[in-house]
Amino acid sequence: MDKIITVKNLVKKFGAFTANDHLTFDVYRGEIFGFLGANGAGKTTAIRILCGLSTPTSGDIKIAGYDIYRETEKIKKNIGYMSQKFSLYEDLTVSENIRLYAGIYGIPSKKAKEKEAELLEKLEMESARKKLISGLPLGWKQKLAFSVAIFHEPKIVFLDEPTGGVDPVTRRKFWDLIYEASNNGITVFVTTHYMDEAEYCNRVSIMDAGKIEALDTPGKLKEKYNANNMDEVFLKIAR
């Protein structure tokens, strides 16, 4: 299989503190890759590096074939990003948000218009086109935020706790979108605190104190740690 992310001996230090301690892993094209770990394990630091927002202390890292030290601008064009904390501009309308992202990623306005219409039809949000984001239900915002993050058809999308706080039905509908994106060849790199969601990933890595302690399919991890579910696996590794 094609490797879309390769990470070899990624180290990130802040003064004397080692936030990422020799991380080595690959992510394959089209994979749903779960990136788990306790708070403070070093997940956010690693994601910021993989997105080209922070420079590692050392290590060889390639994202979609581009070098993390020299080609950060190319990396940014080829990835999408969404987090629970920030995703859309609350005081812009649905349509304005889509146009803004399309513009940032250099999508020609005619094409952006067509894609916007397609997207709103698919999300059944045509009636909300001119509504401000601040007035939308959380479930709608999340669907839209994810769709905007992949609007420029990136090779990889990074999702940082995308489902925090939403109701159980909406959370599952969101995962339908993730599956669909993965089916369309977009690689999904996702963090979550919901351990049932770890089961939906093709492979899962679990970080603890700056190191990757385990990386495999959910099935193999459960076998290896003699656990009934991913919650038990996580507790055995991170406690």
């Binding site: 306790a38 708070n39 706790e161 996580f234 991170a238």
Partner: peptide, 10 residues
């Protein structure tokens, strides 16, 4: 416990 990892939640 919102946004808190599974271990700290326990």
């Amino acid at each position: 416990t919102t946004g808190v990892d599974a271990v700290s939640r326990k």
